[in-house]
Write a protein that binds this DNA or RNA. Structure first.
Length: 343
DNA sequence: CTCTAATA
DNA sequence: TATTAGAGG
């Protein structure tokens, strides 16, 4: 979920081509989750291999990564570690929501309501450890770097961008901005047409770029105020937010009163120590310097035996895709001995 | 979502 | 060459 800043911040629609030559730190959970939600058959079931194991996330990860490489974009996938204590309540809530969705899904199936079933199926999606392991395995075979965060993936991705090892962080959530990523790319994993729920209509989803400095200067607030603004709206660590306070009211309060403590005082809400803890999660996130970013040609034998042998991908398609990796500008340049893209 | 084949 | 339907796993 994350903090909802969509109503008050500027975004630039960009073309994927604008990211040519850039390193992008992708929030892996976020991307995998979206593949699981989007890659479905007409009846709403995800793609599965002969053992009934879900493979939608691998299909999305594989083909999307290749497309990025072909555009000259260098992806690095950033995975979550152990969530902060403060997130446990929210994680439990999400599990409950999923369990409920699962029940409603079964109900809808029994009564033959396909549309309903599809919608509940999406809400019931779970990203298992097995799925994460398989994804890491695929990335390793493909020669794509990944980083495991000690804690939140978004925090680590933001840190990598902040240090300048990546040009931007990529996620659907705005939390990266609270973690001070200088740039955030949204809609990187998913672009194209997306069905509007319950309507027979489609909207075009385009990649967009958000520049932290521009957000702060246009809102006329500091980084610390952005974090406090986030807490007012509600974050993963205080998902309930505050009664009747959305993005706009929160912004007004922060600007008028300068900080969270005074903003809360103005509406007669007691300040809790917990808010300081949330602030410090964003200001001093648990991240690591222990990573190495290196893009290598895929180990083709391993990719083929994994995807076609275990996951039932078509051999022809996988081979075709591997060919595209070899031809991608990222490797073409280094193979022909020309100057590397990133010195 | 992305791929491929079919179609204009 | 560009667009679209259906399949992929």
């Amino acid at each position: 979920m994350g903090v909802d800043l969509s109503e008050i911040i500027q975004r630039k629609i960009i073309k994927l081509d604008d990211l040519k030559g850039k390193i992008i730190a992708i929030d892996a959970y976020n991307a995998l989750y979206q593949y699981l939600a989007a890659i479905r058959q007409q009846d709403g079931k995800p793609l599965m291999n002969r053992f009934g194991e879900i493979t939608s996330h691998l299909s999305g990860l594989f083909y999307r990564t290749i497309n990025l490489l072909e555009l000259g974009i260098k992806p690095v996938y950033v995975f979550d570690g152990k969530p902060p204590e403060l997130k446990y309540k929210e994680l439990e809530r999400r599990i409950k929501v999923k369990e409920e969705a699962e029940k409603q899904y079964q109900k809808a199936i029994e009564s033959g309501e396909i549309e309903e079933a599809r919608s509940y199926a999406q809400r019931a999606i779970r990203l298992t450890d097995r799925m994460v392991d398989d994804s890491i395995r695929l990335l390793t075979y493909m020669g794509i770097p990944y980083v495991k965060s000690p804690s939140e993936g978004e925090a680590q991705a933001a840190y990598i961008a902040k240090k300048g090892d990546a040009w931007a962080a990529a996620s659907q959530d705005y939390d990266s901005l609270l973690y001070a990523s200088p740039r955030l790319v949204r809609n990187l994993a998913i672009t194209g047409k997306r069905k509007v729920p319950k309507m027979d209509a489609y909207v075009e989803v385009l990649p967009e770029l958000i520049i932290l400095e521009e957000v702060l200067s246009s809102l006329k607030i500091t980084q610390e105020q952005l974090i406090e603004l986030g807490i007012l709206i509600g974050t993963d660590y205080n998902p309930e937010g505050f009664e009747r306070i959305g993005p706009k009211t929160a912004l007004n309060l922060i600007k008028k009163y300068g900080n969270l403590r005074m903003a809360l005082k103005s509406i007669n809400i007691e300040y809790k120590d917990e808010y300081d803890k949330i602030k410090s999660i964003f200001l001093n996130p648990n991240v690591t310097d222990n990573y190495k970013l290196e893009w290598n040609l895929p180990d083709e034998g391993k990719v083929i035996s994994f995807l076609t042998g275990e996951k039932d991908f078509s051999q022809e398609r996988v081979k075709n895709a591997l060919q595209r990796i070899r031809q991608s500008p990222v490797f073409k340049k280094s193979q022909s001995g020309l100057e590397a893209w990133f010195g």
